[in-house]
């Protein structure tokens, strides 16, 4: 335990999800004061993590949450925009309602949270915003059209925020996970077929021969949140076990 985040405050959207909860746990272990913001309270929270009911798609909630937070905290050092959903469909099968919903959460939610958090983030002497992009923002997974599009938007927004707010001392980066063992990945694998042999095939195609864990992702979020990463900004950090370093592997 290095306590690399001692004295820092952190706000994590999607803070009770697969990756979000691992981030909150790691931040708390490193000495930060942490708020896990999400739709519904989890059964249990790690020590030093506070839950706040939050909806990234609701402008009033976003505005009010940070107004109230400004009365309690004099700065926000770390903002993690981890709230996100996935829709397993091609564009033909995607309804307009579904398209609008995934953009509302994955992109508009990041915009609203960042917009209303900025005044408090600006008060930090060493602020770090970490957005969740995806390896799917670079290369497509089949049947995830709207999801891929939202992640491309996140990547562009990340660079824009870094460019605009860097001079104010705010670093902005995105993490682009590949396959990470979360409920979202289990949904992607689906119910049909031989799930174990599918999982093995997916593991074997990775240079690391494994897919990632939420803790692997939290390791990089922790580094980017810390002052160790004080020169890192405007970048998209792919963390995928080497998957995208290789061309598609044919079964010959």
């Amino acid at each position: 335990m290095s306590h690399i985040l001692e004295g820092k405050t952190a706000f994590v959207t999607g803070g009770t999800g697969g990756i979000g909860s691992a981030i909150c746990k790691r931040f708390a272990r490193e000495g930060a004061q942490v708020i896990a913001a999400d739709l519904a309270a989890p059964a249990e929270l790690p020590e030093r993590v506070e839950f706040i009911a939050y909806d990234v798609t609701d402008e009033d909630i976003c505005r009010n949450t940070f107004n109230e937070l400004a009365a309690r905290w004099n700065k926000l050092d770390i903002l993690v925009n981890a709230a996100g959903i996935e829709i397993e469909k091609t564009i033909e099968d995607t309804t307009l309602e579904e398209w609008n919903r995934i953009f509302a959460i994955n992109v508009t939610g990041m915009f609203l949270t960042s917009k209303y958090a900025l005044p408090l983030v600006r008060k930090s002497a060493a602020a770090s915003i970490i957005n969740f992009g995806s390896y799917d923002g670079y290369i497509a997974d089949p049947g995830l059209a709207a999801y891929c599009a939202t992640k491309g938007a996140v990547h562009a927004l990340t660079r824009a925020m870094a460019c605009d707010h860097g001079p104010e001392g705010i670093r902005v980066n995105a993490i682009c996970p590949g396959y990470v063992d979360t409920p979202m990945l289990q949904n992607f694998f689906g119910e049909s077929g031989d799930i174990e042999s599918l999982k093995k095939a997916v593991r074997d195609v990775h240079p690391t021969r494994t897919y990632g864990t939420p803790e692997d992702i939290a390791n990089l979020v922790n580094w980017l949140a810390s002052d160790e990463a004080r020169y890192a900004s405007g970048q998209l950090w792919v963390l995928d076990g080497g998957l995208s370093a290789q061309v598609q592997q044919m079964s010959l």
Partner: peptide
């Protein structure tokens, strides 16, 4: 060992210069 899942990447560290 923190970087156990990181491989095959070229990570840029440039103070944000190439993002603009």
């Amino acid at each position: 060992d923190e970087a156990g899942f990181a491989t095959g990447q070229c990570y840029t560290l440039d103070g944000g210069m190439t993002s603009a």
